[in-house]
Computed example of a mutant assay.
Amino acid sequence: MDTTTAPNPLHQVPRLDNQLCFALYSTSLAMNKLYRKLLRKLGLTYSQYLVMMVLWERDGLSVSEVGERLFLDSATLTPLLKRMEQAGLLRRVRAASDERQVIISLTEQGDQLREQAATLPEAILNASHCKVEQVVEMKQQLDLLRGNLMKSE
């Protein structure tokens, strides 16, 4: 009787193709490349698009509220918001009730991009060659993974 056991994959030299982190990273690169192409028509970067989506959902948020939604700190977000303000997409105004707070609001130009951006989810879905149900399930799994990873920090 053979008493040898199969080698534990956790004790083997890590292979790039077996790594979840690399699958996520390389998929993110591919997704960002596709978005870059689509967003060029709107004159937005991917980071700017994320900010716009947050504001299209609920306008008039503080910088910290936008940062919480995007998992970004204000040091990363502030230069991005300044560029977007210079481009005429949004306004940054100090809150009357607390001057330490900066409120972000869409301009008319920024709000008008919403209609043009409405075609992006379908374009991404078509490029994925996935069914809607598959994408929804993947997103739910990734949300769960992100939450678990954030808990373990």
Rank of each mutant, 00 (worst) to 15 (best):
T119P: 00
M31L: 15
V51H: 03
L29C: 12
H11Q: 10
Y35G: 00
Y46H: 10
Y49R: 00
R58D: 05
Q140C: 10
S62G: 12
K131P: 00
R114T: 09
T3A: 04
Y35Q: 12
Y35E: 08
W56A: 03
Q109K: 15
E122I: 11
E153T: 08
A30I: 09
E99A: 15
S64V: 14
L81P: 00
R83F: 01
P7K: 11
Y46E: 02
T3Q: 08
A123S: 12
V136N: 06
L80M: 14
C130H: 10
R69M: 10
Q12H: 08
K82F: 07
W56Y: 07
K41R: 14
L72D: 00
D17S: 11
V102E: 12
S105R: 13
C130P: 00
S105G: 01
Y46C: 04
L77T: 09
M138H: 09
D98P: 04
Q140V: 07
V136C: 10
S152V: 06
G88E: 08
Q116R: 13
D17N: 08
R100C: 02
A127G: 03
V13L: 06
M1P: 06
Q12K: 09
E99G: 05
S74I: 13
R92V: 02
Q112L: 14
E108Y: 07
G43V: 01
M31S: 11
R94N: 13
S128W: 02
V51Q: 01
E57M: 03
L113E: 02
H11A: 12
E122R: 14
L120H: 05
G43M: 04
D59W: 03
W56F: 11
D73L: 09
E85D: 12
S62C: 06
V136Q: 12
A117N: 04
E133Y: 01
C21P: 00
L42M: 10
T78K: 12
S64P: 00
L149C: 11
T119E: 15
P7W: 05
E85S: 10
E65P: 01
K37F: 05
L106G: 01
A95D: 15
L90C: 02
E133F: 01
L120C: 04
R91L: 10
A30V: 13
L70D: 03
E108G: 08
G147D: 12
R83G: 09
C130E: 07
T76F: 05
P9N: 05
R83L: 09
G88C: 06
H129E: 14
F22Y: 15
G67D: 03
P14N: 03
I124T: 04
R114D: 03
E115T: 09
Q101K: 15
R36W: 02
E153H: 12
S128K: 02
P121I: 10
D143V: 06
Y46Q: 03
L10W: 11
L38G: 01
I104L: 11
E133D: 14
Q140F: 08
E122C: 10
A118T: 11
V93C: 07
E65G: 01
Q140L: 15
D59G: 05
D59K: 03
V54I: 06
K82A: 14
L44N: 03
S105P: 00
D59T: 05
M1W: 07
A75M: 14
T5A: 04
C21T: 11
E122K: 09
T5P: 00
Q12D: 14
R94Q: 15
T76G: 04
Y35M: 15
G60C: 10
L90I: 15
L149T: 08
L80E: 07
P9C: 07
